[in-house]
Structures are given as C-alpha cells and as structure tokens.
Design a protein around this nucleic acid. Sequence first.
DNA 1: CATGTCAATTGACACGGTGTCAAGTGAAAG
DNA 2: CTTTCACTTGACACCGTGTCAATTGACATG
Lengths: 199, 199
Amino acid sequence: MSSDNPETRIRILDATWKLLEASQGQGVRMSDIAREAGISRQAVYLHFPTRSELLVATTRYLDDIKGIDQRLALSRETENGVGRLDAFIDAWGNYIPEIHGIATALLAMKDTDRAADLAWNDRMQAVRHGCVAAINAANNDGSLARDLPVKQATDILWTLLSVRNWEQLTRECGQSQAQYIETVKRTARRTLLDGPRSD
Amino acid sequence: MSSDNPETRIRILDATWKLLEASQGQGVRMSDIAREAGISRQAVYLHFPTRSELLVATTRYLDDIKGIDQRLALSRETENGVGRLDAFIDAWGNYIPEIHGIATALLAMKDTDRAADLAWNDRMQAVRHGCVAAINAANNDGSLARDLPVKQATDILWTLLSVRNWEQLTRECGQSQAQYIETVKRTARRTLLDGPRSD
DNA sequence: CATGTCAATTGACACGGTGTCAAGTGAAAG
DNA sequence: CTTTCACTTGACACCGTGTCAATTGACATG
C-alpha cells in the first residue's frame, strides 16, 4: 500500500499465483509466498495488508493477464440465442481451470473473511451478468423455454457454471475439461431452451 | 473415546448441532460447544479426540435422528422412472436444509482435514448411490434421454443435488425451498429424461 | 562527500484456536 | 475407607496471521 516497488509487487503476485496453482489453492502460507518471491515475510505485508487482500489482488492480476473481460465480452457477440449460450459456457467454463487455484483459496476464506467474501461475490456477479445477457438473447429470439421465467433461467445457468460444480464434475466425477463443457452445455440447452433440439 | 458417559456425549452432540445450526456452520469453537453443553472444554476432548471427529460424529448422530437412510430408501420404492427421480430429489433436496449447518462446517474442514474429507465423501457417495439407482430406474423403463450415458446422467443428477448448489440457489439466488426443489426437478427432468415432457 | 529517503531485512512478540498434559475434585460403588 | 471414573482447572506447545521497532543498504540530491 504505502511503500511501493512495483517490481516486487509483481514478484509477490506471480509467486502467489504459482503456488496456488501448484497446490490447488491449499496450504499456501504467507511465508511460502515470501520465500517463493525471494523476499522476507514482512516485505509481503509492506505491499499487501492481509492475506485476503493479497489473494484478491492476485485474482484481479490474473483476470487482467488472462483477459477474462475480453473473453466474456467476445462471447456476447454471437447473436443467435443457442450459439450465444454455447459461447458463454465456453468462455467461462474454460476460464475456470485457469483460475482454479486462486478461486479455491478465496472460496476457503469466504466464510471467515469479509474482504474475500466481497471480492468473490463481485467476481460472481460479473459472471451472473453474462448469464443474464445470454438468457436475454435466447429470450429475444424465442428460443428460451416457454414456461421458464428469465430469473429462474438465469439462476440455473449461473449455478450450473459455478466453480464448485466444475470441481465436482472434473475432480469427483473424473470428467475431462471437454466432457465438463459438454455436460454443462447439454444441461443448459435442454433445460433452458425449447425448439429444435441439438445433441 | 476411552472414558464414556453416554449422557454427556449426547449433550455435546446436541450442543454442537444447536450451535452449528444457529450460526450456519461458521465460527463455532470447541470452547463454545463446551459452554453450550455445560462442561469444560477439556471434557469435550475426553469424548472426541479432535474437532473434526466431533463434527463427523454429529453428522452421523443427525443422520440417525432424522432417519435419512429410511427417507432415501423410501424414495426408491417408486417404480416409475419419472416419479422416482422426483421422489429422490424430494428426499435429498429437503434433507439438505436440515443438515446445512453441520454440512457447512464439515465442508470448510474438508481441504485441511483428512477425517472430515473422508467422512464427507462417504456421505456424498451414499447420495450418489441414490442417484445411480434413480437413473437406472429411468433407464429401465426407457425414460432416460436416449443419447445420454448412465454415468454422465448420474454425474449431472449428483452435481445438481450438491449442498453447494442448494446454498447457491437458496442463499445467493434467494429461491425458497419449494422453488429450489422445483428448479432441480425441472432441470433434472428436462436434461435426463426423454419422452412426454411434463412442465 | 554528506544527508535523506525508501524498500526491504531481522527478530521479537501478541493473538486466537486446537490439542496436550498433569494434578486435583467429588461422587458412586466395592 | 479406598478405588474408580467422569470431569475440572490451569498451564502450555504449536501454528499461522498480523504488528512493531530497529537496522541495513542503495540511490539521489544538495
């Protein structure tokens, strides 16, 4: 915060990212991060006041590097409802594994830590907006299931696309990333859309 | 473990249950449980070696009291595929809110604690067996979606019925319990079953 | 060259929560 | 009257986070 060597800051963020990715978000301590970044533990606190703020910063850092905003925005360009649903599922569903480590760490702090909770919810609201947009697109070209309220459709798509579900389907159920995407697409299409069924 | 006054043991389990339910599974310490049970903190350790073992024991205790096994078993009695899917979703989906506190606490320890992890997975495998049975029933009477492998159908139903999804739909999306059940049923039916579509 | 600034280091420490240990209390049972 | 057993009391170790104060070393400017 107060003191700032941007290079060191980046080193810390990279170290955090690397460790969280390697350990799947578990058991990464401030001292581990410091060691990985090649600095002292206290120096980390010179840049980030708390562990949760460091995790939040790392999330934003990753989002920037990976260009998630662009990727999600791009998926909105598809006009047709079905195509757009697929595009959005591709965009977000394929992003999850890239941020899984940090997401897990943040999720684990959610219950305890206010900052982590807010940051995560914020993140998820952004995804929800994408869901709303996709559902609206389907609704506009008449492909949304006839008796399904937009709010409920959004809830379903959003829930389907949660990080926890990605974990469950890939880790617990052993699905590959491709299978995961297929599973979500299939569920979303059949539940949310009417009309000519594909797949 | 070694020393055993079953009355005290029950007092501890009841206290744990009560506190976890009240606090939604968060911030319940061993000392809180002891105070609630009207005994010293160390006495708790006389009965349960670690916090996680206490939580696991509380889960089993609740399962017994609530008779979840019977309730799930009962849902298997429905013969027809569609009815059985609904019955199973009713049985498990309506059980979740009853155990939500303890489930959250256990889930939070899963990453850190071996015992909690094993106990939780065990619990979830039992649910998965119910899913398998429901999917098989649908498959046997030809109502399972034609191009959907049994394994994938099971993955979907099981994931749909996760505690995390219940949390997301009721807490984050603000759905009532009845709406939650309806949402899951609808998604399951449309995704997993073919043939005459209902709702 | 001297001085000040600033990032980072070192090492000590407080706190909260879990789990351990040892000695002691009090009541019931032989 | 002693043994046994459940429980109490209080101290303590451990771990990880976060804080504090004194110090080092580099670089910049007068």
